[in-house]
Design a protein around this nucleic acid. Structure first.
Lengths: 213, 213
DNA sequence: ACCTGAACACCGTTCAAGT
DNA sequence: ACCTGAACACCGTTCAAGT
């Protein structure tokens, strides 16, 4: 056996250099978050799962916050992919229908990935200024909802509403629904886990019908 | 000098028994939360501020979670007092007006006490089952919004909407606005701190106008 | 270049001993 | 009864030393 390798259970060979420790730490952190929420992510436990010593992660991330920032970037990429896929080729269906599809894709991913959604939404968990992709996607989403609302208004599909307040209200609605799920409010409202996505969609319908002419 | 007292700065006399350590710890925890958010609350720092040793709090609270539960009960009491005051004597103004007053009182307190609001809303910060007053107030608030909505429907003030979905949408809207504030979303939406309460009220108006006939 | 392992300053929590 | 102070098992982070 070469000097530079160690034995492990089931004879797996672990070289001194991990190979892609950065990637392994991000994956471990994503798994820890999914299992116990964002606060369950610890640098030491991620290191343990990657099979390295407690100090090793700091060669790749300056701090726990830097690891969380990388996790947020990864989660944001998955979130955006789902939303882009849901909107692809729907331009002809009209702005109000697209707003509903946007809201539904947002809610669907948030409901199925609560811990990852919490990380990218909360801002306390990572350094927002360092997470360029998260900020960019956020700005894109804001611009998109603004355009769709403006299109709906221009084509006479809306009741007379304040567009800015309507845009904020729409975002507050979907973010509130996603947060109620994360913060375990739905049982108190008599909504069972398997009904959450359906009731959220109905709530979105109530809102869109309310602003539509 | 008596044996049972110690000297401190400015000659304050600190007896061996604190007097009301439980109260002092809750106040310290509320202050820590207000300064740095719920995660900034530590048992050791609360003990330090109360002038006692690290182990002393555990005579009054079984765990950090038990301290947070007491903090949540205190915050909930203040929150409820503000809402009750806002609704006192408004029955004659009609259910939709009362819903708006309820929403505005909720938002006003949440916006001005973000960390305390976060503690009572998040559920991860304390033991919900042990916080009887929080659960009771929550159930009361849910029942109240349900009654007001039912009254509005019965007196023909609503467009044909699904009452349950409307109730959830209304709560998601106000909770989402409160959360956007806590999670620092408003700057991204071009809303400055001093505009937050006004835009939140406008968003509430958009929603209520949308469900009203 | 990358990782180990010991160290340090925190934190929650326990417990014998003091008042 | 209530509090101290030392202890233990964690965690984030650093750094000399190893490969």
């Amino acid at each position: 056996m070469a000097k530079s390798v160690k034995k492990r259970s089931r004879a797996a060979v672990i070289p001194y250099h991990h190979g892609d420790l950065r990637r392994a730490l991000i994956d471990a952190a994503l798994a820890l978050a999914a299992e116990g929420g964002p606060s369950a992510v610890s640098v030491r436990e991620a290191a343990r799962r990657a099979g390295v010593s407690p100090g090793a992660p700091f060669r790749h991330f300056d701090s726990r916050e830097a690891l969380m920032t990388a996790v947020a970037e990864e989660a944001q990429q998955r979130f955006r992919a789902e939303i882009d896929a849901a909107l692809a080729g729907t331009a002809a269906e009209g702005p109000l229908r697209q707003l509903k599809l946007l809201g539904m894709a947002y809610l669907r991913w948030a409901m199925r990935n609560p811990a990852h959604f919490e990380i990218i939404s909360t801002g306390r968990w990572f350094d927002h200024d360092a997470a360029v992709a998260v900020s960019r996607d956020n700005a894109d989403a804001i611009a998109l909802s603004e355009q769709l609302l403006a299109q709906a208004a221009a084509s006479g599909q809306l009741r007379p509403v304040d567009l800015k307040a309507t845009q904020i209200a729409g975002r507050a609605l979907v973010y509130g629904l996603a947060r109620m799920n994360i913060d375990r409010h739905f049982p108190r409202w008599g909504v069972q886990p398997e009904q959450v996505e359906r009731i959220a969609e109905q709530a979105l319908d109530v809102f869109i019908s309310g602003i539509a002419k």
